[in-house]
Amino acid sequence: MTAAEHLKVASIGPTLDFDKVSLTLGRTLILDGVSFQVQPGSIHALVGPNGGGKSSLIKTLLGQTPHQGQLRLQWPTTPGTVGYVPQALEFDRGLPMTVDDFMAAMCQRRPAFLGLSKHYAAAIGEALERVGMQDKRKRRMGALSGGERQRVLLAQGLIPAPHLLVLDEPMSALDEAGIQVFERLLNDWRMAGITVLWIEHDLEAVGRLADRVTGLNRRVLFDATPKEALTPDRLLTLFSTHPRSPAQ
């Protein structure tokens, strides 16, 4: 998809404005005056070392962590739906929970043991079809491979249909077939004008698939196109820098 074609897509997702967002837990500075903007309908990658504050920034966006500074969502019309795909799923693998049970628990209000409601059944079927898990709906979650569980997590992020999608290292457990599914979904989201904020450690994938990249190590070290951002010098600085707390 060319840049010109991208401009023709009407964005349904919001603009995200991070304006001097800071976060301190105890005496530890987690985020230090983080400022950047995510354009509506774009695939915006967030890269950086472990412990650099990426997941903490996502938690502030989702309203899970108090912070200083401002974080604004500018919707094109009325506020829309926010979807979230976590990095991994921790649960008791001995639980007799099928894929359908999990999707019911995540996507509908009525108790999962009552089964899928008619209202959500079609949407859940479509979402599982999109991630290639339609034929494993009756499998226990604990019997799935890590990559298959990650595909189910991707599917739950599609219900209800999101306008803003937040992804926390969704490729971490995927096999080659799963990666192809994810890349196809990314293109679908771009074509639909959905805003995507994507934490990712696979820099080769970021270089191919993202519209813009922000390098975060407590503070923003760069914010640019993938070609401008993913240079050896910038990456060396990003992964070797240990920002100090401001002088007291």
Rank of each mutant, 00 (worst) to 15 (best):
I194W: 09
G94Q: 11
I58V: 15
V21G: 06
E148Y: 09
T241S: 15
I179S: 11
H201A: 13
R130L: 15
H163I: 02
P170Y: 11
W189K: 02
A3D: 14
A4N: 11
E126F: 06
A104G: 14
S42K: 10
F102P: 01
G193E: 14
Q37N: 12
A224Q: 12
E5M: 12
F36D: 06
M97P: 00
A229V: 04
P226R: 07
I159E: 08
A229F: 09
R149F: 05
V181C: 03
I30Q: 06
H163V: 00
L164V: 05
F113H: 13
V34P: 03
A247E: 12
A247Q: 11
V166S: 02
D19N: 13
A210E: 01
G142Y: 08
G26W: 07
L235K: 09
R110Y: 13
A229C: 05
L197N: 00
G193H: 12
V47E: 02
Q70I: 00
S117Y: 07
V206R: 06
I43N: 06
G94M: 06
A104T: 10
L236G: 00
S55I: 03
L89F: 15
A127Y: 05
H242Q: 15
G207C: 02
Q68G: 09
A88M: 11
H242K: 15
N187A: 14
P86L: 08
Q87V: 03
G125P: 01
D211F: 07
A229S: 04
R212A: 08
K136L: 13
L167R: 02
P14C: 07
M106R: 14
E228W: 11
E129Y: 05
A122S: 12
G125Q: 13
L235T: 02
P86I: 11
T98V: 06
E148T: 05
A88F: 11
V131T: 10
D188S: 12
A123T: 03
D175V: 07
L62M: 15
R130D: 06
T195P: 06
L23V: 14
P162R: 13
L23T: 01
L73Q: 13
H44C: 12
R212F: 10
R151W: 11
H6A: 15
L114M: 15
A121M: 07
G83D: 03
L71H: 02
F18C: 11
F18E: 06
D168Q: 05
G142M: 08
K227T: 08
T225F: 09
G94D: 10
K20N: 10
L31D: 04
T15F: 06
G132A: 09
Q108C: 14
G26E: 11
F239A: 01
R27Q: 15
H67R: 02
K138W: 03
A45E: 09
L62D: 05
G83C: 04
G13D: 04
N187G: 04
S42N: 00
L174A: 06
W189R: 08
